[in-house]
């Protein structure tokens, strides 16, 4: 899948366009999804998302997709899972410190971002991954988050993350989510 991933990064501009369309569809669907219940659609949507994104991006289903801010190069493929750019160990030629046969995910990310319209988003400081959201659908989260952009947060803890990372909240809201999470999307909450 490494090759397809490289292909996706080479065509980051096109994938950005597709993602933008997908995003507006998801946001438009928010009322419908809310009516059916995000909890009910969580599993099937997550399944489809996993299939599509695993093929294209070697997706690891972190649940907080930030591809638009990382040049369409999935940062979860970085052995250190860095969310904010390359570490100090990149090898000559731009290869990974930990997996010398693989191109540095972040060297590719900057490369991909340079071709994207919204490539400057790579400058956004992103918060750490919320590990209890692993496996959940990022697409549904985008739909909820963008739609609930102005809705007041109820949980103080999550407001703190969004406040500490304001750019991330603005550019990649699902990285610093505020909307209410359906029980199905959060590990260990039943």
């Amino acid at each position: 899948m490494y090759r397809i991933r490289l292909f996706a990064i080479r065509h980051s501009r096109s994938f950005e366009w597709i993602y933008k369309r997908l995003e507006s569809v998801m946001v438009a669907l928010d009322p419908v999804l809310a009516k059916i219940g995000y909890d009910r659609v969580e599993r099937p949507v997550a399944f489809v998302e996993k299939c599509v994104k695993t093929v294209l991006f070697d997706c690891k289903m972190c649940g907080q997709c930030v591809l638009s801010s990382t040049g369409m190069s999935c940062p979860m493929n970085c052995p250190k899972q860095l969310r904010n750019g390359p570490c100090g160990g990149v090898r000559p030629g731009g290869f990974c410190e930990v997996k010398p046969d693989m191109k540095c995910v972040w060297a590719l990310a900057w490369d991909g971002a340079s071709r994207m319209k919204g490539g400057a988003q790579i400058h956004t400081v992103l918060p750490p991954v919320e590990r209890n959201l692993e496996g959940s659908s990022s697409w549904l989260r985008v739909s909820r988050e963008k739609a609930a952009h102005l809705r007041e947060a109820r949980e103080k803890r999550r407001t703190a993350i969004a406040d500490a990372f304001p750019d991330a909240r603005a550019n990649e809201p699902s990285a610093a989510p505020l909307a209410e999470e359906p029980a199905q999307a959060v590990k260990g909450s039943k």
């Binding site: 860095l82 703190a160 500490a164």
Partner: peptide, 25 residues
């Protein structure tokens, strides 16, 4: 582990220092 990366760590300590709160709020 790599729960944080160096940047999210920086921002977190800055939040602790300047906003007087943990990342938990």
């Amino acid at each position: 582990v790599f729960d944080f990366d160096s940047l999210s760590l920086l921002r977190t300590i800055k939040t602790m220092r300047d906003e007087r709160r943990f990342l938990s709020g």
